[in-house]
Amino acid sequence: MSTPEAGTRSGNSLVSDTLVNFTRWNRKLLRNPTSFLLEIVVAVFSLLLFSAVFGEVGAFALQQAGYVGIDYITFLLPAVLMQATMGSSFNSGIGLVKDLDSGMFEKTVVTPMSATAVFSGKAVSELLRIVVQLVIILGLATVLGASIDLGISGALGIIAVCLLVGLLFMSIANIVGLLARDEEALNAASMLFMFPLLFLSPAFIPLSSDIELLATFNPVTYGVDAIRALIVGEDVMTVLTVTRFGGLLNTLVPAVGILLAMNFVFGSLAVWLLGRASSTEGQ
């Protein structure tokens, strides 16, 4: 063993520290890919199930709502993409709770790595996980008959919107995780968020006026509308009427703006809570 005075540290940088944490979380995912794969299966299964069960009702509802030339399966695609994204995001909170439980959180805090690097490395790994899932789901959905009018650029746009929603729910999952500090509670919370929010949005059928007010405050509404606009290439915004940008931008610009604002609010809260946990974990 070399002498302790020699100083074998090469030092830490934001980039290298982020990479170290990114690698750790990727390794953990590869070691235990069950939930990753299950989330894809559930999404594709939902797509098949909902289009089989609601297919005819859905087609009728679409006709009533004035959607022309869209298959129900294509209409449904944003719903399963949102479902997969939200489900995947909650893993961020579960990873955090496990680290708090196992002492790895404290152990990481006590290293010379910056907290920013620790949490962004983890977040980037979790966003990458979502991207891979979305690519697979989009591929399978296309095989099953869904179509994206805007092609590859549309698909890239869809992934970008999903990441905004993913980041938002990652913040929420981390906030719940830090407050509850319990994996079971977090799992329950993910269900509590996911299904009401999906149903209180235009995800499965065109939005009914009964829930329009609730849908206005639901981030999933903006995710679904933005994705749908990118799929059909038109303005499909349900809860707001914006006309100044033209075409599908009338949906995309306000939806993305609102998602960014929500990300700012919940992201700041999550970062603040994480910072507080890092500096007072000993208590």
Binding site: S10, N12, T23, R27, K28, R31, T111
Partner: peptide, 26 residues
Amino acid sequence: PQETSVDEELTARENLRFACGAYGVP
């Protein structure tokens, strides 16, 4: 720390590799 703190999903080598990165070992 008092409570054993290792990442159980990672191997012994991977735990050490993470620590090397965290402490900036060349």
